[in-house]
C-alpha cells in the first residue's frame, strides 16, 4: 500500500487543475499539460491511458477541426470555404484545456482504489458514492470483455444484416450482464465485510505530505500565472 500520493493529494491536484484551466491564459496551458503528464507518470501512468485511445484523439481533433468553421470571423479562404484563423487558435486552446482536464480526472480516478475512493468521498461528505464509482471504473475491463464477446457472437451470426435488431440485442445483453456483474460485486463486497450503512473511522483525508504537495502546487501556479511564457 503506498503512502503518497493518497486520496487527499489527488483531490488537491484535481481542484488545482480545474482552477488553472479556467484562469490560465492560452500561452500557459502547455506547462500545465506537462505538469499533468508528470503527475500521471508519478502515479504509474495508468491514468494516462486515454492518450492511447483513438476515440480520445478523435474527440480532440474534432474540436480543432470544427472551430475554424464556427468560431471567430472568417478571414481565410480554403477552396470554396471561408474559415477563421482566430477560430482555429481558439479551437487549439480549447483542445489543450480539454486534454488537461480529462487527463487530470483520469489520473485521479484511475490511480485510486475503491477503498481510497470511499475515503475521498466520505471525506467530502458523499457517503457511498466512492465505492460505487471505484467499483464501476475497475469493472470496466470485465464489462468490456462481456460486451466484446456479445458483439462478436452477434457478428458471427450475421447480425450486421439486421443492424437495428443487432444493436438492440447488444444493448440489452450489455445491460443485463452489467446488472448481473453489479449484483455479483455487491455480494462479494458484502462477504468481505463491506456495509454502506456502517462508517468506520477512516484515516484522515489530508496528511502532512498532502499539505506540502498543496504548497508546491500553489508555487507552480504562481510561476505559471506570473511568468510570461
Amino acid at each position: 500500500m503506498r503512502s503518497w500520493p493518497g486520496p487527499g493529494s489527488h483531490l488537491i491536484f484535481l481542484m488545482w487543475v480545474l482552477c488553472l484551466t479556467a484562469i490560465l491564459p492560452a500561452g500557459q496551458m502547455l506547462p500545465l499539460l506537462i505538469t499533468v503528464l508528470l503527475f500521471g507518470l508519478l502515479n504509474g501512468g495508468r491514468g494516462l491511458s486515454p492518450l492511447r485511445r483513438a476515440r480520445f484523439w478523435i474527440m480532440i481533433l474534432s474540436i480543432i477541426a470544427i472551430s475554424p468553421w464556427i468560431l471567430g470571423q472568417a478571414d481565410e479562404a480554403w477552396g470554396p470555404w471561408r474559415l477563421s484563423r482566430q477560430g482555429l487558435f481558439m479551437g487549439l486552446e480549447m483542445a489543450l484545456r480539454a486534454i488537461c482536464l480529462l487527463l487530470a480526472f483520469s489520473v485521479s480516478v484511475r490511480s485510486l482504489s475503491p477503498g481510497e475512493m470511499v475515503r475521498l468521498f466520505e471525506g467530502v461528505g458523499l457517503k457511498g458514492l466512492g465505492f460505487a464509482l471505484g467499483v464501476a471504473l475497475n469493472l470496466l475491463t470485465t464489462l468490456g470483455a462481456t460486451i466484446e464477446a456479445a458483439y462478436h457472437t452477434i457478428r458471427l451470426r450475421g447480425g450486421h444484416r439486421r443492424p437495428w435488431l443487432a444493436l438492440k440485442l447488444l444493448l440489452i445483453t450489455t445491460i443485463a450482464n452489467a446488472l448481473r456483474y453489479g449484483d455479483d460485486v455487491v455480494k462479494a463486497a458484502s462477504a468481505r465485510g463491506f456495509d454502506p450503512g456502517v462508517q468506520h473511522p477512516q484515516p484522515p483525508l489530508f496528511r502532512r505530505a498532502d499539505g506540502v504537495f498543496a504548497l508546491s502546487l500553489v508555487a507552480v501556479a504562481g510561476v505559471l500565472l506570473l511568468h510570461p511564457w
Binding site: 490511480s111 482504489s113 477503498g115 475497475n138 469493472l139 460485486v185
Partner: peptide, 9 residues
C-alpha cells in the same frame, strides 16, 4: 468467478 469479486486496482 474471480473476475467479478476482484474490483480494486
Amino acid at each position: 468467478n474471480p473476475s467479478t469479486q476482484l474490483f480494486n486496482a
